[in-house]
Design a protein around this nucleic acid. Structure first.
Lengths: 216, 216
DNA sequence: ACAGGCATACATACATGAATGTAAACTTGC
DNA sequence: GCAAGTTTACATTCATGTATGTATGCCTGT
């Protein structure tokens, strides 16, 4: 039954991407053949080669369906009425990212990114990760520096260090949790980690029982 | 030139493992053939199949040369004269681990583990990672719980959360740095992150301006 | 409005290349 | 000479890319 209508063609494209997610997750990217993806979607390799140039192309198309840059996350938690303190924005964005991560598609794709594909393979995953990390680092650092200037975080902590701490913590948590999401509830653990972090880098005045803080 | 003395045979085994590190790093585990490893070591595939059952076996042999369980790291920084506070042990162990990580072999193999091999491949990397993480979590949690009992960390921070924060931070840092070690000096950034973390979860008395300085 | 033509959306077949595991040959230490 | 260590040769499997086949949707001219 060859030749579908335009809408149906788009549907099979999506089906192929869905299938790719499933098989990549099951067998790892490099070990899955396009044949397997096609069969999972009820198609043949011809369909795959029609919609995508090759495995790498398909892989990137799969990623495009779930990417969530930090800037967008920050926009999502923005309150148009009254602007938030920079660290509060970051905290909410992190929590929001945690929520997003738990969605089935996001979870699958990020698991693939972290655990089911390797460098120097069909895809240049290292450069990809690097670009995401750089982007994240850049916009995150801005907030930490602003917090540092405005005295909304402890002065002795350098923004660069705080930034890397948060990024590492978040990335490490994703890496660990996605390895086996049944082990603990990231919806519970994650927020507690994030909240603790931000509470601990906030000025003493906010949490220390005794000493009032004098900033600048 | 076949057949060497026993010592030479052991040497070629090591040479094969060295070669594996190099090629795995360059091309990713799944994309490297045993042929490539053999040629890198100046041998043929026959030698590989003599010393190792298959690629998975070789891979595990490679790992065995660098593993550093947390318990051993803790032992390394132990001072037989006077026992340390639990968090101080952890801090030193973490710093020590950072040092070890920068050694060329450790660096290569951990890069392979994080970035150059994928789940469901020849090796069950997920279970491997999980076992390492579980072991680490277990012995780390003991220290945090002790610190919690003895009041050497802020009471409101749950040991479980602190434990996961540290593990995630460390793992995330490794993951990020190993992606491209030329980007920043982990020997500088790492310790500052770790020190900041431990300073921030220590009781207020140790760092709040109002109280006198005490370095235990 | 409809018939033909062309591009679309796949399926099938084939040619190629590469990796694996094993068996057999060879070579040298002991 | 026997077995440890290593090579060469071989059979099998499997993925890839491409080329070709084919039927249908869609469009255009009249």
């Amino acid at each position: 039954m060859p030749k579908r209508t335009k809408a149906e063609a788009e549907a099979t494209r999506e089906a192929l991407l869905d299938a790719a997610e499933v098989i990549f997750l099951e067998r790892g990217v490099s070990r899955t053949s396009l044949e397997q993806i096609a069969r999972q979607a009820g198609m043949t390799r011809g369909a795959v080669y029609w919609h995508f140039k090759n495995k790498s192309d398909l892989f990137h198309a799969m990623l495009d369906r779930v990417k969530m840059p930090l800037r967008q996350l920050l926009d999502d938690v923005e309150d148009p009425e009254r602007p938030r303190a920079p660290l509060e924005s970051l905290r909410l964005a992190a929590l929001h990212a945690l929520e997003r991560l738990q969605g089935p598609r996001s979870r699958r794709v990020h698991t693939i990114l972290f655990h089911c594909c390797e460098a120097s393979s069909d895809v240049n995953i290292l450069e990809l990760h690097q670009r995401l990390a750089d982007d994240c680092h850049e916009t995150m650092l801005e907030r930490f520096e602003e917090a540092n200037r405005t005295g909304t975080m402890i002065a002795s902590i350098e923004p660069e260090i705080a930034c890397r701490m948060l990024m590492s913590m978040f990335g490490g948590l994703m890496h660990d949790w996605l390895r086996d999401p049944t082990r603990y509830d990231i919806g519970d653990i994650g927020p507690r980690m994030i909240d603790t972090f931000f509470e601990r880098i906030s000025p003493c005045a906010t949490h220390c029982p005794s000493s009032p803080q004098s900033s600048s």
